[in-house]
Amino acid sequence: MKMIQMEGVSKDYQVGGAAVHALSEVGLAIGAGESVALLGPSGSGKSTLMHLIGCLDTPSRGRYRFEGREVGRLDVNALAALRCATFGFVFQRFHLMPRATAWENVAMPMRFAGVAPAERLRRAAALLERVGLADRAEHRPSELSGGQQQRVAIARALANQPRVILADEPTGNLDSVSGAEVVALLGELHGEGRTIVTVTHDEAIAARAQRVIRLLDGRVVADDSG
């Protein structure tokens, strides 16, 4: 059985009284260590799919099993624990805590995993070093460039050594140089054996992944490897 296994997964939202079918009958399987791009235009349901994979949300219908566990049956605390230990998120809008410094942002998930304060500081420093921002540790997000913010976000995603990195349009708000750096960094993480799922509408970025899953109107329309 694959690490991520979805069968007939749908997600509906209520928007102003009308039901919106964000995802319909999606079935897919992603194995550990794969590098996957979810490709589609805006509104195709790719972000919703990423939220479901990352256990930020649960399916309206269908089954999602992560490492054999039925995610739909988990309560909010178990979902949080699963996210904390397993997934690292990288968002288009970075989503850093605006009032916290770079190292505090990187250390935040460690608090939720119960890491001791001294160890948090040490690990956060090492992660910032790794993304090339050791000298920006005390800076707030507003004092960093977009590329730097996204690298802090990647360091934060790595805080609890997750097996899966989920990146939602990670280069969407970056210039091409910074974007290339981020893509390279994600490639490195895949090289270390992590599973990488990248959400994008950009064919060029999707092409860097081993496998591209194309979505349109909430359905998987193509799934091609290599």
Partner: peptide, 14 residues
Amino acid sequence: EIGIQMAVGARPSW
């Protein structure tokens, strides 16, 4: 920010 905390693993009780 609460959403961010939850995304990176904060339990509601936290």
